[in-house]
């Protein structure tokens, strides 16, 4: 069957199915199960209202449970078993095998580098862009353009930056901007940037910083606008210069938002896969955890170690998860 047709049918069936489910289950509840008439009218209404939320929630809960909650436990189980031995329980064997793999430690080291640099740089650039564009006439256009990489896929960004980092033999014209500038500034010969260990990590991080700065800028710019004007007026009257106003008055007031931005980008960083996969595929010491996991799961077919490394990512995310839940609960009260 033509996939486009299949897609159309799926939309109709999916949407129709959802609507039909919600409509019919409501009808069933009100007309058949607990009709609001007869001797038990009041009790029936109460019962129907107690059940209805679960009707509304059921498809979502089912999908969430199956696609996100169940895999966490299943992955934990897989990481403790050996697939080739028919799924026998092997304890922490996979973890110790993973710990013996130098590639894993390389991935951990690089992931920590990413965690240190990308959220910090994105937030800093975002804050800078937000503050600078806030009060100039063409600020919105500038914001739009800085925000634009958000719409570009990691793979697309990888191609864009591969062109920037492109290196060609010494005797022909350089078509990569970076090498062209490097030679202009007196560099001896073109460098293949992505194969220089350690520094190539930074060059990969630039791609994600480029994408995430727009996000940080949008959020922080909204926060900056929310700052009460009296505080700034008071500072000006007291003779503060623009830098003091920014660092001592504005930044402390949006500290909460900065933390939110920081953690959101941290989560993106922990899951970063496409950029490394498309640009170096973990060669030249650029491996990261998500790509290591993909390697193990789908290339080496080693589900044990693959799942173990997925659990490491989960472990790294958990503090943020707990913190988010804690904040959300605080808000609901």
């Amino acid at each position: 069957m033509n996939p486009a047709l299949q897609g159309l049918i799926t939309i109709v069936v999916g949407v129709g199915g959802c609507v039909a489910y919600f409509y019919l289950s409501n009808q069933f509840l009100d007309r058949v199960l607990f009709p609001p008439r007869g001797p038990n009218t009041g009790r029936n209404i109460n019962r129907a209202n107690a059940i209805r939320p679960w009707l509304f929630l059921f498809p979502a809960l089912f999908a969430l449970g199956l696609y996100l909650a169940y895999p966490v436990f299943e992955t934990l189980r897989l990481s403790l078993t050996d697939r080739s031995a028919g799924g026998a329980f092997v304890g922490l064997d996979n973890y110790s095998r993973m710990a013996a793999d130098p590639k894993f430690w390389e991935a951990v080291r690089n992931n920590f580098l990413w965690l240190l640099i990308v959220p910090a740089a994105s937030t800093a650039f975002g804050l800078l862009a937000a503050q600078l564009t806030d009060r100039i006439s063409w600020g919105n256009i500038a914001k739009s353009l800085i925000f634009m990489p958000m719409a570009i896929s990691f793979v697309g960004a990888a191609v864009i930056f591969k062109l920037v980092y492109d290196a060609r033999p010494e005797d022909v014209a350089q078509i990569g901007v970076l090498n062209a500038i490097y030679l202009q500034l007196g560099g001896e010969s073109p460098i293949t940037w992505l194969t220089v260990p350690f520094w190539n990590n930074i060059f990969l991080m630039v791609v994600l910083i480029w994408i995430q700065t727009g996000f940080a800028m949008v959020i922080l710019s909204a926060a900056l606008r929310g700052i009460p004007e009296e505080t700034i007026e008071a500072a000006i009257v007291d003779g503060a210069n623009p830098f003091q106003i920014f660092f001592k008055i504005k930044v402390p007031q949006i500290a909460g938002t900065i933390v939110v931005v920081w953690t959101t980008i941290t989560i993106v960083v922990l899951k970063v896969f496409d950029i490394v996969f498309a640009m170096t595929n973990g060669q030249w010491e650029t491996q990261v955890l998500a790509n290591y996991m993909y390697d193990k799961l789908f290339r080496a077919n080693d589900w044990g170690v693959g799942s173990a490394s997925a659990m490491i990512i989960m472990l790294l995310v958990t503090p943020i998860l707990v913190w988010n839940v804690y904040n959300a609960r605080k808000e609901m009260r």
């Binding site: 992955t75 998500a290 997925a310």
Partner: peptide, 12 residues
């Protein structure tokens, strides 16, 4: 669930 990495879901 907002922050659970979807990497965990691949194999299961």
């Amino acid at each position: 669930l907002l922050v659970v990495p979807l990497q965990l879901a691949l194999i299961p």
